[in-house]
């Protein structure tokens, strides 16, 4: 394909700018509804980054569960509580300054760490273009049902032993979701008895 623009990089820059820009907008916005909107945009751009990294399946899940489910839930919460005085809440300037200084320092530290670690540097364009596109759902599905397709092409034998199948987390997480569902339903539903009868504690 020659030496022209490497499109994945172009789209990486686009999506990362969107993700970071909207994440900053979440921090700096004072209106909670707009924050929610910016958050949606930021996380949707993150899903774009997932697609670019070749993880279609996780990207689709991010859109489906996170953006389409969790954030709708959050926005729902925002609306249920959106009285005028809560939509915009100010934080004292002193906290802002301390927070921003610490935040900038932390970002600088993490960036330095990322860009100075040799094994995290980009591979060459020829190598990247040689990486074969594979279906993404199949290996994930197999790993969730007790097998690892990548075990065979891992060159490092010490790492091969640590490639666990994800059957247990996959099954136990369903129990967790059930319990959490019970808990959320318990808290959200109206009380069944008169308040005077209950209330120990």
């Amino acid at each position: 394909m020659g030496d022209g623009i490497y499109w994945p990089t172009f789209f990486f820059l686009l999506f990362s700018a969107l993700a970071c820009g909207f994440a900053l907008a979440v921090v700096f916005s004072r209106n909670v509804v707009r924050m929610a909107f910016y958050l949606v945009m930021s996380l949707a751009s993150t899903a774009g980054l997932f697609f670019l990294a070749g993880e279609d399946f996780v990207g689709a899940m991010q859109l489906m569960i996170y953006v389409g489910g969790t954030l709708v839930l959050l926005i729902f919460g925002v609306m249920l509580t959106s009285q005028k005085q809560f939509v915009e809440m100010k934080t004292p300037a002193g906290q802002w300054i301390v927070g921003l200084v610490t935040g900038c320092a932390l970002v600088a530290l993490l960036w330095m760490a990322a860009f100075e670690t040799p094994q995290w540097q980009p591979i060459s364009r020829a190598e990247a273009e040689a990486v074969a596109v594979q279906p993404t759902a199949t290996p994930i599905g197999v790993a969730l049902t007790n097998g690892r397709v990548d075990q065979l092409d891992q060159p490092d034998e010490t790492l091969r032993g640590g490639m666990s199948s994800y059957l247990l987390p996959f099954e136990i997480v369903s129990v967790h979701l059930l319990v959490v569902l019970i808990g959320a339903a318990y808290l959200a539903r109206a009380k069944r008895r008169s308040p005077s009868a209950a209330a120990p504690g």
Binding site: Y166, V180, G183, Y186, L187, K191
Partner: peptide
């Protein structure tokens, strides 16, 4: 993963438990 999963599974229900008396 089990480390994080365990912490989450132990914590999230206990958030609800600590607010189990709803009206107070």
């Amino acid at each position: 993963l089990t480390l994080f999963l365990g912490v989450e599974m132990a914590s999230v229900p206990s958030y609800v438990l600590s607010g189990v008396v709803k009206g107070r």
